[in-house]
Design a protein around this nucleic acid. Structure first.
Lengths: 244, 244
DNA sequence: CGGGAAGTTGACGGGTCTCAATGGCCGTGG
DNA sequence: CCACGGCCATTGAGACCCGTCAACTTCCCG
């Protein structure tokens, strides 16, 4: 077991997107947390169709939720960025209806689902936060569903790039070279319901028009306005976002 | 204003899928409820991109959530059946990122979002229920995303029919003629990311193989096992489902 | 009896998929 | 030090699933 971070010094606290906790809440969260989990890029965090007793907050790094059909077809449900919570759905379904895999080295905080009642009864504010986080995830999945169901390949790819860019931006992850985008074209294809080949062609087309640049895993958007118009996508304006 | 039902005699209470409330919870819910809303088939319950201060529980009837793009393309996000809750996402997004429309005459209970804090602080158990309902919705949207992203037209249609049949079954809505399915082929197309024409052809094909019968809005599944195999879909087993 | 909504079917075009081959990059091992 | 294999990106060719356009039927209801 590695040395673990005290929740009072959680890196998420430092980001100003996230609403602060009271000292009491922080203390509770720290005590509520079972352990930390550190994984490498490509590692499975939650296995598909297994049972898990845990709730996970992604504290650093990227990951994604996915489901696969028996013949190997895979659908990425959404990408997880720092602050995102996953595992609530197991509370409903019994087992985990999806898998979670790390895209980069990642750190997660693990919470025991069987003590959720403690959280709700002692800190209703945190209960509210859980609901908020769940609703937030659903918003993202809704948006993905609209893309996959009704947008053309070009619109889908534009939408995904804008979406991930905006989410990174809110987290303060924009650097000189743009944002770090640790995904392959296969991931994009799996997220958008496209084939790898067609995803590639579509990306080339967007790049050809100078709408984005990707060098060495770093994404910069050339013309955000035009990209948003193509995608007909406006990021959700998030105020006072909670985390656990 | 019509005469309203006392929550102590809520029809949902009578269905044994739903977990019972304590008398105190019921009393609070009754007092928390702002009003009832009765709509006709085809009525808009929540307008897209408007602002709404409310949370809705569908007490009877069918409805659906949808989003439309500016050129008219429409994606149905999911169907709402009795017991389903909607409106939580507005808490995150500020305005309503989707519309809700009634498929049949429907009755809804309306709750004020700005008093949510009351609920969480006074009845943590109900707070938990809200999270549960939110996670449940997301499960359904996840499943739809898998369909639209990775299943063929035939698989998608089979999946939707099985899905709606199963959900109705759990609610005890199976009659002699099967379940009541108050949707048109256009709705199916919009839910599955297909065109109307192709939806029709696919339905004919399934019907031709005797996999389902649809007479006068009543759906019966001819061979549930085979349908489930085609769709590679297993309904979520729900234990002790809450409602508000 | 007329009109509109829902369902059905044919023809055709196109967006996307599959199969296949190539090149670049990088870590590994002989 | 270089050959090799594997992952990723790229591109061509052809096939097919599905979308679009259009016409027609059925049914219901005024």
């Amino acid at each position: 077991m590695r040395n673990e971070i005290d929740c009072r010094h959680c890196p998420l606290k430092a980001m100003k997107v996230f609403s602060p906790h009271t000292p009491e809440e922080t203390a509770f969260i720290h005590e509520f947390r079972k352990r930390e989990l550190h994984v490498e890029a490509g590692d499975t965090i939650v296995r598909e169709a297994a049972t898990s007793d845990d709730l996970y907050t992604l504290r650093g790094g990227w990951a994604f939720r996915y489901r696969t059909l028996s013949d190997g077809r895979r659908q990425i449900l959404n990408f997880l960025l720092p602050g995102d919570l996953t595992g609530l759905q197991q509370e409903v379904a019994g087992n985990t209806p999806y898998g979670v895999e790390a895209l980069t080295a990642a750190q997660l905080c693990v919470f025991p689902r069987n003590r959720l009642w403690d959280l709700y009864s002692r800190f209703p504010s945190l209960g509210y936060d859980l609901t908020w986080l769940s609703a937030h995830q659903e918003l993202i999945v809704d948006e993905n569903l609209v893309s996959v169901g009704r947008r053309t390949a070009l619109e889908r790819v534009a939408m995904l790039l804008v979406h991930l860019y905006k989410r990174s931006e809110v987290l303060g992850l924009v650097g000189e070279r743009g944002i770090h985008l640790p995904i392959t074209q296969q991931h994009i294809a799996d997220a958008l319901g496209l084939s790898l080949v067609h995803t590639n062609r579509t990306l080339r087309r967007l790049a050809g028009e100078g709408l984005y640049e990707l060098d060495n895993g770093h994404l910069r958007l050339g013309d955000l306005t035009r990209m948003q118009r193509i995608a007909e996508y406006n990021a959700i304006p998030v105020r006072g976002r909670p985390f656990l």
